[in-house]
Design a binder for these strands. Structure first.
Lengths: 331, 331
DNA sequence: CCCGGAAAGCGAAACGTTACGCTTTTCGGC
DNA sequence: GCCGAAAAGCGTAACGTTTCGCTTTCCGGG
């Protein structure tokens, strides 16, 4: 391993001077050149580990995710990485399988300077403890009992947005897929939806998976006699549910946006490519992630304020998957 | 920062003994308990940085990606992380924006023990140099001049697979979207396709983007008079191109699998939700990533063999987006 | 040519571990 | 109770930096 020592040997300068140079201190031009030359010869590269030991900072933040299985997670990693690379801070990713409560400790052991996390129930405690030592920013799920800075989607508003869109198209009745067991962020979307839609809103229990949603929707569709009977509008308050619902509808042979209406959640690509184009509620993933990145960075730079929470607004991306209802189904 | 020293103070044991205990050495039961107690009291956590300095290993590997913008990249991170966490090795992600040739150095500065990379042209040199010091495994793109272990899709075979599928459905002519500027992995798919399909294969230049593909396909469709004239089969050798082609077809009002045929690439979700279900060539992302993870791990554990290359086979996931051609279009 | 302040350079200690080679303790067999 | 081997424990140096408080060198003004 090539170190300051090698540079010392070839330049005759002291370690202190070399270090000073590397940290922007003043060094006589001749020595400056000598050091540069020696660096080039030996291919010297500062050792971040030694630096970290000495300084107590690793210039690294941890990104903790419950799994690595969707676009949002990727966006989080990407945004945080991009923002932090600008200031030369590295990103360590860690997933926290539900079996294992030690993932946070793994990050702390690596002496990360901060953590950006999508909390899951089993690491709330560890995150709370961690928050005592380093900045922690929570994302996506407002974990009960975790009092740290956070950036979240306004889930209730998302549900309301979907309901209002249906109402404005003449729908007074609709089914909302309601995951079983519940997940608080999705549950808030369901609540917002039901509250806004009024008595016509019905919740349809389904496992939180593509196939679960497909089966649930398929069995509702099978039990409906004519295509225009009964509730023919669905709200899928999550990407997986959306995918399942869409598959079920397509498999049933019904025409989306005519026989049956659907508002999905996330999955911009899917929405664009669907036929007809799917109307979805989108959460501003990139903004959420960027806001989180900005927040850790502020905290790292010492702006220690009382834990603050930001709620970002959902957007409706309109396609043609919601039929317009007047007296009878038209179009 | 709580360290061995604190434990030394409360137990009276020497640092050497404490260290030995933490590394699985034999320690008298009484002392064992004393240490455990002290650890609990102080909330001690081994300092990976100090360990790393002393041992020269960081127990960290770098994952280098040109960008973080698709499913495959996520799968790579997920698989590598999952595999390495089993043996307590951390994962640092770094993206390498095309402006910047220093991303590899950033990883080396952090003294990663190995690198898994999807190479991009501007960091081939740096990767080559890195390979002299630590194991490097390349993924997805076989960069010319980069002589390291690699795991890739058999791109030619993927093109051939698509062509054979079209032929078996009676198609003798088809357009393949051909990215401009070329990207060698996608180009190999195009080549395989054209070679297998024979003289009926025509390449259609398009920028490597969703909108580029959409425009290219749209203009072809607009110039076709009747729905059954001329080439009505497309092969999109990449996810973005697939998405663009699908959008163009839907927007044109033509019916997929009847008026026009399409074989896409990747995007299992999209394929399932498309109506009709899309026929795609899938690369075994998870396997590729897992194989890469396994390879770094082997290399880290000293199995230093001559650089080896693995080619994984594509799969065809059949939907109903390819029409069966006999004399005239049927169905 | 000398003075003095400013600029540059220096040695040593410290960060938290681990590994080496040694000394001390333990304990079963006599 | 003693011997000796095996087990356990110990002090110290080293990993590559940065920082502290000094000392040395530089250089313009008189």
């Amino acid at each position: 391993m090539v170190s300051y020592k090698d540079i010392q040997l070839t330049t005759g300068l002291s370690l202190a001077t070399i270090s000073k140079y590397f940290n922007g201190g003043n060094v006589r031009p001749a020595n400056r050149e000598a050091i540069d030359a020696a660096v080039a010869i030996h291919g010297y590269r500062p050792n971040a580990i030694a630096r970290g030991l000495r300084s107590g900072k690793s210039r690294t933040v941890g990104v903790l995710l419950p799994a690595l299985d969707n676009d949002f997670h990727l966006t989080i990693i990407a945004s945080v990485e991009q923002r932090l690379r600008e200031v030369n801070i590295g990103v360590v990713v860690a997933t926290s399988p539900s079996a294992d409560a030690a993932t946070v400790d793994l990050l702390l052991g690596r002496r990360v300077d901060g953590i950006v996390a999508v909390p899951s129930p089993h690491d709330v405690d560890a995150l709370s403890r961690a928050a005592g030592e380093i900045p922690v920013v929570a994302l996506d799920w407002r974990a009960p009992g975790l009092d740290v800075d956070g950036v979240f989607l306004d889930n209730r508003a998302a549900g309301q947005l979907a309901a209002r869109h249906l109402r404005s198209h003449g729908h007074t009745a609709a089914l909302v897929l309601s995951p079983e067991p519940p997940l608080s962020s999705v549950a808030a979307r369901v609540d917002g939806f039901l509250a806004e839609l009024g008595p016509g809103g019905v919740s349809l229990a389904a496992p939180l998976s593509v196939d679960g949603a497909r089966d649930a929707v398929a069995s509702v569709l099978a039990s409906v006699l004519g295509p225009t009977d009964a509730p023919t509008a669905f709200f899928a308050p999550n990407y997986e549910l959306t995918l399942g619902a869409l598959i079920a509808i397509n498999e049933s042979g019904r025409i989306l946006g005519r026989d049956v209406s659907l508002i999905g959640f996330d999955g911009t690509d899917l929405a664009r490519a669907s036929r007809p184009r799917l109307t979805i509620i989108e959460q501003p993933m990139r903004e959420i992630a960027e806001e989180a990145a900005r927040t850790v960075l502020d905290l790292l730079q010492g702006e220690r304020a009382p834990a603050r929470e930001r709620l970002l607004a959902p957007r409706l991306n309109a396609g043609a998957s919601v039929a317009r209802v007047t007296d009878t189904v038209t179009d």
